[in-house]
Design a protein around this nucleic acid. Structure first.
Lengths: 191, 191
DNA sequence: GTCTATACGCTGATAGAC
DNA sequence: GTCTATCAGCGTATAGAC
């Protein structure tokens, strides 16, 4: 693989593991097997490289979600598929973890892809829920956007609980809990 | 206030704002208005001070939750009170944010108060939910522990979404969403 | 494109005077 | 208890040779 590509992937990994503050140019270079001068030839510096890495990660996350949400099945089934997708839970969410980094949240350029990713995800889930409501699968009084926000929040919060416990158990419970609440309100699709 | 106290409070603030990796002894000293030697006289070093600060923050968080959850009202009302309590949403959760810090999660001593706090909170919420179920307020098939995990996760994930959006809107929606799902399953208390 | 050299402030301490 | 050295190493670059 070429040098810029290796640098971006190393940065993606390190941002996921250690966040922005915890990731040094030196560590990126070492993981990529690339020299100092080489890194600064291809990228202006740490913020520039981080931006490329975050955009790449955001794209990937969105594509994965879309794969589940546009699959076959009823609305509730697709949301269940998305929530129960295999995940490396203890690593947490590579985008969500960036929200804890003041240098990311404080830089509009770096925060933008993070904001857009969650905005898109909430919108996409809301659309699926609205579909289910229109088909009679979900009750008419269900607020699609609020429910979508709750679903995304359960995922993100589930990662937090799992890392706190050093165990996937609370994550699995949280997902089960929200799915039970949602399916209790669901009826077989009619439309 | 005395010196150790000022150091602990400064560390609490900095851990909340910048996390463990982003918090330096020097910054702690400056915020506390305390000299280098003074800090190392009272504490063995950064991990020691962080441990004291995290324990203090965990106690406080637990006391605040207990105040809402042991208040008056039905089970669902108390959970609603807890979720709708006034919060500085964009600052995030001072305990939850630590789960993104590999140096915290990787150190058993530092992770312990974080784990215990969430274990306690889930248990406390589960007890309230079980109460509501026993009184007929909540359906007999509701899993108290799964639902409790989902409720805590919505809160923690709500902070993530709010910080991503630089707005409380997604937090408020997530809380409304989960409350709507929960109260749709609730009937007036009978026991 | 990649390498080495150089720089300066910060990190996280320890030592010892007062 | 608090203060002022002092320190080795890291963070985040820039400069210029090859």
């Amino acid at each position: 693989m070429n040098t810029p590509e290796r640098l971006i992937e190393s940065t993606q990994e390190l941002l996921w593991e250690r966040g922005y503050v915890g990731t040094s140019p030196r560590a990126i270079q070492q993981r990529a097997g690339v020299g100092q001068g080489s890194m600064y030839h291809h990228f202006a510096g740490k913020p520039d490289l981080a931006l490329a890495a975050v955009r790449r990660t955001a794209e990937r996350m969105r594509a994965q979600a879309e794969a589940q949400l546009s699959g076959p099945g009823t609305a509730v089934e697709r949301i269940r598929d998305y929530l129960l997708r295999e995940r490396d839970v203890l690593r947490g969410c590579p985008i969500g973890r960036l929200t804890q980094d003041p240098d990311v949240v404080g830089d509009p350029a770096l925060r933008q892809p993070v904001e857009e990713t969650f905005a898109w995800l909430r919108g996409r889930l809301a659309a699926v829920l609205a579909e289910g409501r229109a088909g009679g699968e979900l009750p008419a009084d269900l607020d699609a956007e609020d429910t979508a926000a709750a679903v995304v929040a359960v995922l993100q919060g589930g990662y937090v609980l799992a890392r706190a416990a050093d165990s996937v158990e609370p994550f699995d419970r949280a997902i089960s809990g929200v799915l039970a609440l949602l399916t209790a309100r669901a009826a077989p699709a009619t439309g």
